[in-house]
Computed example of a mutant assay.
Amino acid sequence: MTAMLVSVAELSNIFSVLAVLICFCGVILFIMRNMMVLRVHGDDLMFGGGGGVLPHAPRIPQMKMMKVHIPFTFKLHESFRSTYAEVECEVSSQVEYSLQAIWGVSIRELHLALWRPWNALRDASLKGTLLQGHAQYQTPPQARQPHGEQTLRLSLPAPELELGTPPRLCYPLVIFLTRIDTRDLHPDETVALVNVVHIKDSVCTLPTSILAQYLKQANGQLSCLKQLYLATGNPTSYEEDVSSTGLGPALALAEPCNNTSGNARGGAMVTSGPGDTAESSLWNSAGEQLCVVCQYFPLSRALLPCRHTCICASCFGKLERCPMCRSPIKSYFCIRGEEYMPAEKEMNPYKHRQQAPGASHWLHDWNDRLTDFLGFAR
C-alpha cells in the first residue's frame, strides 16, 4: 500500500511538470502567432504609457476636392536678376487674354478689387481702369492670342518706386492675366490669374519671388493657389508638369479665400498646361513616383495641412504624422486613382484568413477569442 501511494505521489509530480510545460508551450505558440500584434515584426502594438489599452485613432477625413482647369501659366525666371527696372517671366495661355502689369499696388485696395463681381473686374481690367488711383504706375493692357511658353520682360515706366519701409502697405508688382472671351463658360471655369510679385531691393532683401497667386472663377469664387510638395521636397505648382509621375496633369491646391475649417468642399485641385518637369529618384518602371515609406506603391495622397504628396493608400493608414515634416495629418485628398491597391483580404491576412477545417479551425477560433479578450488588434 505504501509503495502504491509513493508511486501515485511521483506520478502527480510528473503530471504537474507536464501541465506546466504544456502551458509554457501554449504561451510560446500564442506569442509566435501574434508577433505583429506584440510588435516583434510589426507595428500594431496597442498598449499606452499607463498600461491601459489605447482606443483606435480616429479616422483621418478625406477632403472633397473638385478639379478646376486654368488656361494660364506664370512663373519668374530664377536665373534672371529681376530689378525694378526689369522683370523677366514666362507666360503661356490656351485662350485669348489680356495682360497688365501694375506697379506699387495698395495691398488693401487690391484685395477689395479681387472681391468685386467678376463682370466689373473684367471690364475694368480690359479698359485699363483697374486699381486706378491706387497704384503708382500702370502699363496699358495688352490683348494677346493663345500661345505656348513665352519669355516676357516687364519694365517699370518710371525710375523707381516709393514703397516705404517695412511693413509696407504696397505690393511692388501685380500682374493680371484676364480672359477676354467669356461666352458659354462653366461657372467653375477660371477667368483670371492674379500674380503678386516681390522684387528684392536694399530695404527688403528677401529674394525676388511670387508672393501669392489668386484664381478668379466665372461664378465669382476667389481662391489662393498653394503649392503641393513632391516626395523629394521639390515644390510643384500649377505651372509645373508632373505628368511623368503618373499623377496626370500638373497639380496644385486652390483654397477658397473665405474657407473655414468646417467647409465640406475643402478646395479645388488645379490642373494646367505643360511646363517644367520635376525631378525625383523614387520611380518605378511604369514612370510613377513611389511612396517614400514602402517604396513599392505609387504615391497617391496629398497630406493637409503640410501639402506633402509623398505616400500611398497602404501606408497612409499606419501614419498619424507626415513622414517628410512630422507634422500631424489633419486631412488628405487623393491626387490619382488608387486602383493599384490589392484587395483588402490580401492586405490584412490576419483579418481575412481562410479557415482550416477540423482541429485547426477550432484552434484558430479560440486564438482569435483570446486575442480579442486581451485587447490586442487582429
Rank of each mutant, 00 (worst) to 15 (best):
L370P: 07
W103I: 05
R183L: 15
S93Q: 05
E320S: 14
D276F: 11
I329S: 01
C170A: 06
T236G: 07
L251G: 00
E86L: 14
G42R: 00
N263Q: 13
E160F: 06
A250W: 05
T190L: 08
Y229V: 15
G164C: 07
L290C: 00
G220A: 09
P61I: 00
P328F: 11
R33I: 03
L161W: 05
G267E: 03
L299E: 03
S244Q: 00
C334D: 15
P55H: 07
L370N: 11
R369C: 13
P167N: 05
A356C: 08
S314N: 12
Q217M: 10
P323C: 04
S244F: 06
T236P: 00
C322K: 01
G104L: 07
L11W: 15
T208A: 10
N258A: 09
L222N: 02
L230W: 07
L121P: 00
Y84Q: 05
P55M: 05
L169D: 11
I311S: 02
S280I: 07
L299I: 03
E255P: 00
P207R: 03
A343L: 08
G26D: 06
A278G: 13
P172I: 01
Y350E: 06
G273E: 15
S155I: 09
Y332K: 04
N258D: 13
S92I: 01
H41G: 07
T309Q: 04
E240P: 01
S92H: 02
P342R: 01
N119R: 12
P256G: 11
L126Q: 07
L18F: 13
S285N: 08
A143T: 15
I180T: 04
L303W: 03
Y171Q: 10
Q227T: 10
F316T: 01
E288V: 00
A143I: 12
H352T: 01
L363W: 15
S280V: 12
K75C: 13
G248H: 03
I199H: 01
G267P: 05
E88K: 10
F47R: 11
G220Y: 00
F80R: 01
R369D: 13
L193C: 05
F376C: 02
P117D: 02
V191F: 05
T371C: 11
F30D: 02
A302E: 06
